[in-house]
Design a protein around this nucleic acid. Structure first.
Lengths: 106, 106
DNA sequence: GACGTATATACCTGGAGCGGTATGTTCGGG
DNA sequence: CCCGAACATACCGCTCCAGGTATATACGTC
């Protein structure tokens, strides 16, 4: 289970997760949606699976992949201390806009 | 300004940002804190700078690096749709614990 | 049991990136 | 004006990784 950061750093894997957000999908389905080769998709799914971000359910030959967002919380946790920083910036912007509304060209 | 995801994927760069969170620092300071070579730190700072995540202020030979967390919002934005997913899981856990408290062995 | 479907794995290749050493550049101090 | 401190850049070597093609494996169907 490698670093969630490195796993999500890849754009294709983010696209996979975005697709899975609407519900479980098979590999063939993902291949069609992504426009890359089937082995490439399988390897990305392997990485996601070993990171614990997706789970598999076997159904005959088909494998239904689904999201388990739990490991993504690690990213969120790391991001947390920074969130209030740009929140403050947005607050400052908001106050600035408030002042603008009070009198843009005073 | 490359992808914030790829920039933050590197552990050393995350350590740099964590160090800068307490306030601006010079390159030499970061080198001592990180335990890697000075050129390596300079290159990481370059990546962070080109991504817009840090800013520099020149002071004679010294360069004071500071955080600009704005680009990190992109990561937060991507993460947003997933956040409620594990929040739901936590809610479910909470409700489960509530039921446990009501009567664990009812 | 032969065949097609669905998926995984093995192997290869090109490119990107991190780390280091060596060197340039800028600036202040004596 | 020379020297050292602070930082950036050039270059190199190594590893990792994403993508592909070829192939193995499992399963349902007929």
């Amino acid at each position: 289970m490698s670093e969630p950061f490195a796993v999500v750093a890849d754009p294709t894997r983010r696209r996979v997760l975005d697709l899975l957000r609407t519900g479980p999908r098979t590999v063939t389905d993902l291949v069609a949606a992504l426009g890359v080769s089937q082995p490439t998709v399988s390897k990305h799914l392997r990485v996601l699976r070993e990171a614990g971000i997706v789970t598999v359910r076997a159904d005959a030959q088909r494998r239904w992949y689904a999201i388990d967002p739990t490991p993504l919380a690690a990213i969120d946790d790391w991001l947390a201390p920074y969130r209030w920083m740009w929140a403050d910036r947005l607050d400052a912007l908001g106050h600035h806009l408030d002042r603008m509304e009070d009198g843009p060209d005073e």
